[in-house]
């Protein structure tokens, strides 16, 4: 569905030193610098796949999405989405995709969202019956009935985001580019939007690329992740496999019923943390079930949870590795 080969986007930016002197200097002589926002990226995404795009701010995630949705002209390389060259902005291409940017809106600010939906219906050439059915479905899934007739500028951020989502998906695109779709939303609303995206993907076999600062978005939705750093891909593959290779152990958290001496606990596994009744062990992946059974049998356990180390840490490890390799 999506094919990207050696995609590059280089910008030239004028730089200015701070202050008045800097302004004067740059007025007469501009300092030009080339920024390689995307620097030779290649990947393929199959129909129906949901892929998480991870990377720090400025890593090139959004620039890539903008090239894939036809907003930006690539400096070099090739991109094909659903068989189209995005930059050509062919009508059938634009009807196949959507790009949702958490901070930007397409809804008409001074009018109720419903008016924007009607405009989209006409622009995307959606027949009345289909429009009604889709609206009904989105209204139920996103709980929109009280929101649709309010002026957009009077909506809360969460309400507005739900309307943006509905407006962006009204034409039932087959390819979704989601750039920080949950930014600034509270946890409930994040979960809501996540569930909606998952449902949409299921129902329409839509292909999804998602960038997010909230790891929970990515872990909940995407099996596969692509990690970018400084315009290059440093990891592309299965999220679960990444966890296994980069973190060979799991974290086992226990709550005890009564205090147990540290020395007794150390016999089971290496202790990460011990505070009163709460213990955290680090246990090799292969031994998790055996150890858990043993702990439960031999210690006064009130509660037990087994977790992967926070994914932020794992991604952080990836970055340090990648940068170390570059420096070698």
């Amino acid at each position: 569905m999506i094919e990207v080969r050696n995609l590059e986007k280089h910008y030239t930016v004028a730089e200015k030193e701070a202050g008045l002197a800097g302004s004067l200097k740059s007025f007469f002589k501009r300092q030009i610098r080339v920024v390689k926002a995307v620097d030779g990226v290649s990947f393929q995404i199959a129909t129906g796949e949901m892929v998480g795009f991870l990377g720090a701010n400025g890593a090139g995630k959004t620039t890539t999405l903008k090239m894939l949705s036809g907003l930006l002209h690539p400096s070099a390389g090739e991109a094909r989405v659903a068989g189209f060259v995005p930059f050509e902005r062919q009508s059938n291409f634009l009807k196949t995709i959507t790009l949702i940017m958490g901070q930007k809106q397409q809804l008409i600010w001074d009018l109720p969202a419903l008016d924007s939906f009607l405009v989209n219906q006409a622009i995307y050439e959606i027949p009345d019956a289909e429009y009604k059915a889709t609206m009904q479905e989105f209204t139920d899934l996103l709980d929109l009935q009280d929101v649709l007739k309010k002026q957009v500028r009077k909506l809360s951020l969460g309400e507005r985001m739900k309307c943006e989502l509905a407006a962006a998906l009204l034409h039932k695109p087959k390819v979704l580019f989601l750039d920080e779709p949950t930014i600034g939303l509270d946890v409930n609303m994040q979960v809501r939007i996540r569930e909606f995206i998952a449902a949409y993907n299921q129902k329409f076999a839509a292909t999804v690329i998602l960038t997010s600062h909230y790891m929970a978005d990515v872990t909940a939705l995407c099996k596969r992740i692509i990690v970018v750093d400084k315009g290059r891909i440093i990891f592309d593959g299965d999220l679960a496999a990444l966890l296994e290779t980069t973190s060979p152990s799991k974290i086992m958290k226990l709550q005890l019923e009564r205090l147990v001496p540290r020395a007794d606990l150390e016999r089971y596994a290496s202790i990460l943390q011990l505070e009163g009744l709460n213990v955290e062990f680090s246990v090799p992946r292969a031994e998790v079930s055996v150890k858990a059974a043993k702990l439960l049998a031999e210690l006064p356990v009130a509660d037990i949870t087994i977790e992967d180390p926070p994914i932020e840490e794992i991604i952080g490890q990836l970055f340090t590795q990648a940068r170390a390799e570059v420096n070698v």
Partner: peptide
């Protein structure tokens, strides 16, 4: 797609929708 629309009809609908929205605006 219950009834596919002619290009003319589509253009007319776009014209009407944009007119309606802007008029409200």
């Amino acid at each position: 797609n219950s009834q596919p629309m002619s290009p003319f009809e589509n253009t007319w609908r776009k014209f009407k929708a944009l007119f309606g929205a802007w008029l409200a605006h």
